[in-house]
């Protein structure tokens, strides 16, 4: 089963919509609470990254009986150095974004910790594509 969500860059008020919807779906599927939490935390961070760093994006959710696959694709500035971006505490967030409580540089590392597989691909000045997989029987 597939579900799609749109995300607007800069719209912090609606960041978290996709993750709360996905949480509802996973509860309906009787997925273990711990796994739901992992997915929600990872997806929320990834949503916020599109809002905070890109112009707009699409989240594609693919559900099957074993796992959930999340593909987040955005149009944006891209990430010039992925290894650097993955480091804890690294952030290019503006002071304004930090003011709102985002931009601690923990998002990407936190995403990685919460999923079973993470692929991050990016093209500077074009956009970023993040693919996350979480198995239900972990």
């Amino acid at each position: 089963m597939q579900v799609k969500y749109q995300v607007e860059g800069g719209d912090f008020t609606s960041a978290g919509y996709a993750s709360s919807q996905v949480k509802k779906l996973l509860k309906q599927l009787n997925v273990a609470p711990k796994v739901i939490k992992n997915v929600v935390v990872a997806l929320y961070e990834a949503e916020v990254n599109i809002v905070a760093h890109a112009y707009r994006g699409v989240i594609e959710v693919e559900l099957d009986p074993q796992k959930i696959t999340l593909v987040l694709e955005d149009e944006g500035p891209g990430i010039p150095n992925i290894d650097l971006a993955m480091q804890e505490g690294f952030s290019t967030a503006s002071p304004a974004v930090r003011e709102m409580g985002f931009g601690a540089g923990m998002g990407l590392p936190n995403i990685k910790r919460n999923v079973d597989d993470m692929q991050l691909e990016s093209q500077v000045d074009k956009g970023t594509r993040l693919t996350l997989i979480k198995f239900f029987n972990a």
């Binding site: 089963m1 509860k27 309906q28 599927l29 009787n30 099957d64 239900f136």
Partner: peptide, 21 residues
């Protein structure tokens, strides 16, 4: 005492979810 699930079997729950949508 979870009440949200559509079925205890995940495969069947997924089918039901897809049908409801």
């Amino acid at each position: 005492k979870p009440i949200m699930m559509l079925d205890t079997d995940m495969g069947r729950a997924l089918e039901k979810l897809a049908r409801a949508r």
